[in-house]
Design a protein around this nucleic acid. Structure first.
Lengths: 331, 331
DNA sequence: GCAATTGAGTTAAACGTTTCGCTCACAAGG
DNA sequence: CCTTGTGAGCGAAACGTTTAACTCAATTGC
């Protein structure tokens, strides 16, 4: 009914309408104790009828906090990250935080640029899955809480899945299905999670599982010549263990094109349980990471840290689980 | 070498180091004409050695512009949108704009909440793929440039692919391969792009292609009972035309589970050419949308609009193209 | 009954910019 | 010589908050 809503009400407007000073309005709105119940009520009413929303930039300037966080990812196109992003954004929003996105497309310089953009905008904290092995020095300079995701770096807190456990689970599953000679399509050497998956797998039953061959592949699933050759020859491997689902699916596709049947001729397992794992043919047996939980917990962790909690750099490791589907044959 | 870099230099610091007033620093940095070349040089030097970066919140407060934009999407998990998001973020960053993400997960209320969060943070503009058929009234209230993506709404500018053309291309392709009786797995009724694809297809050769059956499916590719039944009976259809790739791939998967071969027993085509279209088995014949261009152009359009260009609400329609792969058989 | 304490509210400064209006020196025009 | 104009630069206000310091009255403690 009223003339409200025009061009954003300010705290001053609320103050005059409630008949108190701006300071009181601010105190009332922020739940400070030094304001009586009568005044508080008037302020709240006035604020509501005016549709008052605090001006974030002004708040930011005064308090130094923006209530925004950065989310820096290497490749949104990878379902692993898009699911993560979804979880992060959703949780952030529930906490009243705005999620600002940087997609570095796996380029270290773009990442740096993005980080600096975030710093400039004064985000209160950053959730980050770093692309480079070594964290840029800029880091010290940007001086806000950081929570890494999926990829630990010394001295930083991280939320990630128990990759080694996933590797062990896979090894166990291989054995149970009679596979004792396997090929490895590991992820990149400089990505720690790839290493841990590999290590979990090979060290689980070193005497009962032989590694027939092993080649490194990018997490984007593009198969280099070497990998393609290995897949064709196989050298007695009855199971190929891929560094992630993207790689596994690429491999399945490649095998299919060359008339080798999965799982009849060779079995295959992935890692991540991206949503496509259950859609491809055959449906992929893989390790499910708690993607939602990783996203959620990382925001929670960051949020605590932003609210002044001491940095004890915990590494939060979440359990993974085996999802049996159709891509491994029992022999 | 110097003591610089400590806790963010302000414009004042630059001023004293350059031996001029803050006003002059501001003018120099913003390329205003009323500053001599000597002074300008001194300011630039000082700014560089101090590593000065303007405080965005302060700027925002004074000018009312944040140099941030909102990106509101229905489902990041859908590769269509994640590719779009990647393009948008990348282009935005190149323009010095920060992209703030909202993923409504197809929920109208979450979308609204997100929009209001963006408004509160004062983003300068919004790129938006709306989930509801009808735009919420809040819209007028948020009062900033908006560019819609993929889903036109009366009175708003939009960047989208020529969906009708895609439909026609598909019809043509069907005919060329001898399919004259088809089943339709259209997208949701309330999504305009779905309608246009459908319309383009059915109206291309109304007398030469018969629609054997037709069922509506969500764009997330989850097949309702009705769709599953249709896929099994088929009623003489030799080709099924899916509303998007997700639906097509789900359908292929479902068919495969029920031992009907694609494309031997039935052909199938999709729409979007998401990255998975070339990975599934068989590789999917589909319509490629220029996802990168859509993202890029929408940011450009928004940017113009933000810089005061008159709102002439152009609907930017980009051409699509047919990508022939392995999922349709010639009969 | 008086000092001390408390509760409720106010004033004003500060955050880091941009920008309006001003001054000042100098040049040009008559 | 005086006016007018111009280029370069400065001072200060303003943007919308939060918060420290303060006032003033009412209440408490003795």
């Amino acid at each position: 009914m009223a003339d409200s809503e025009r061009s954003m009400a300010t705290i001053k407007d609320v103050a005059v309408r409630a008949g108190v000073s701006v300071a009181t309005v601010s105190n009332a709105l922020n739940g400070k104790p030094n304001v009586g119940s009568a005044a508080r009520r008037k302020v709240l009413d006035a604020a509501k009828t005016l549709g008052y929303r605090p001006h974030r930039a002004a708040q930011a300037m005064r308090t130094g906090r923006t209530r925004a966080i950065g989310l820096v990812l290497p490749d949104l196109t990878n379902p692993f990250f898009s699911q993560l992003a979804q979880a992060v954004e959703s949780k952030a929003r529930r906490l009243g935080l705005l999620a600002c996105l940087i997609d570095s497309q796996n380029a270290a310089d773009a990442e740096l640029e993005g980080l600096s953009l975030l710093a400039q905008h004064g985000v209160d904290g950053i959730i980050w899955c770093p692309v480079g092995a070594r964290l840029p020095r800029l880091l010290g300079a940007l001086d806000r809480p950081i929570v890494l995701i999926d990829r630990p770096r010394p001295g930083f807190s991280v939320v990630h899945a128990n990759n080694a456990m996933g590797g062990r689970l896979l090894a166990q599953h291989a054995l149970q299905n009679g596979h004792s000679r396997v090929g490895l399509l590991c992820g990149p050497r400089n990505v720690q999670s790839a290493q841990q998956r590999r290590h979990g797998f090979v060290s689980a039953f070193p005497d009962r599982i032989q590694i027939a061959w092993e080649v490194r592949v990018g997490f984007d699933g593009i198969l280099p010549r070497e990998a393609r050759e290995a897949l064709l020859r196989r050298r007695g491997a009855t199971l190929v263990v891929a560094g992630n689902d993207l790689i596994a699916i690429s491999a399945m596709r490649f095998l299919h094109e060359h008339d080798v049947q999965v799982p009849a001729d060779v079995s295959i397992v992935g890692f991540d349980d991206i949503s496509w794992a259950r859609i491809v043919t055959p449906r992929l047996t893989t390790i499910a990471q708690p993607l939602g939980a990783i996203g959620t917990r990382s925001v929670e962790l960051l949020h605590e840290r932003m609210s002044g909690a001491q940095a004890q750099n915990p590494a939060l490791m979440l359990d993974v689980s085996l999802v049996e589907r159709d891509s491994v044959r029992s022999i």
